[in-house]
Amino acid sequence: MSEQTISQPSTLQLILRSNGFLIGAGLTAIFVLAALVSFIWTPYDATQISISDKLKTPSAAHWLGTDHFGRDMLSMIMVGARVSMAVAFVAVGVGILAGVPLGLYAASKRGGLIDEIIMRGNDLIFAFPSLLLAIMITAVFGPGAVNAIIAIGIFNIPVFARLSRGAALSLWQREYIMAAQVCGKSKALISLEHILPNITNLLIVQGTIQFSLGILAEAGLAYVGLGAQPPLPSWGRMLNDAQTLISIAPHLALVPGLTIVLTVLGLNLMGDGLRDLLDPKLRRVKS
């Protein structure tokens, strides 16, 4: 009944879809750029304390104002972007590099003992309240960006393992996979040659989503003091610093908060846009 499922997206929807992707990609690009530029240039030294300039509201000299130590907020946001993005990016990388092979392997041994062990292991990680485990890990190994990466990355592993296992299982039912088996190809080779290329779209979309979740998680860890350590600025700790001063200097809380919201929003919009752009092909492949 393919005729039944044809449905025309409304014009409104089409515009929103393509615009959503453009807005998302634009926002993401701005923050990635800010992070990269911060390596060579920031308006001020992000760690430079200048008590005489403290708690300035945004002005021509300090576009986003200054904090309670007189540090330039824009510079701190730029350097903070570096930390946030690096942590989230590497954590997604950890998830993909460990999770995808596990998922593909489990799918190729469907129903076997190893499949069972991998999937139960995944369930186990899901049973831990994610932030709690992150807190435990950073508590054990000490706070810092690297440990934040490990803590967040561990939770990405089951996400990618499940996703790739599920997608691979449905691909294993495809006849072209059986044709490859008839040609004597091993399961590992088939996973690499036929399955992995056909799930990359899914991985890209999920990757953007996990990236944005990573940024949120990093901010949370940094907020409770378990992220990147001073003097390196980080968005989450800027919020922590702002908390006690929120009634006298709300911009201290608004600037980093909005930065996080816009970054995550941008990534999510881009992910949704990618899904719409990549999925129709994927669906055609399936049908």
Binding site: S212, L216, A219, G220, Y223, L239, A242, Q243, I246, A253, P256, G257, I260, V261, L262, V264, L265, N268
Partner: peptide, 10 residues
């Protein structure tokens, strides 16, 4: 989805 809950709390 994009709002960190502790910031929203603040």
């Amino acid at each position: 989805v994009a709002i960190p809950n502790f910031w929203f709390a603040m």
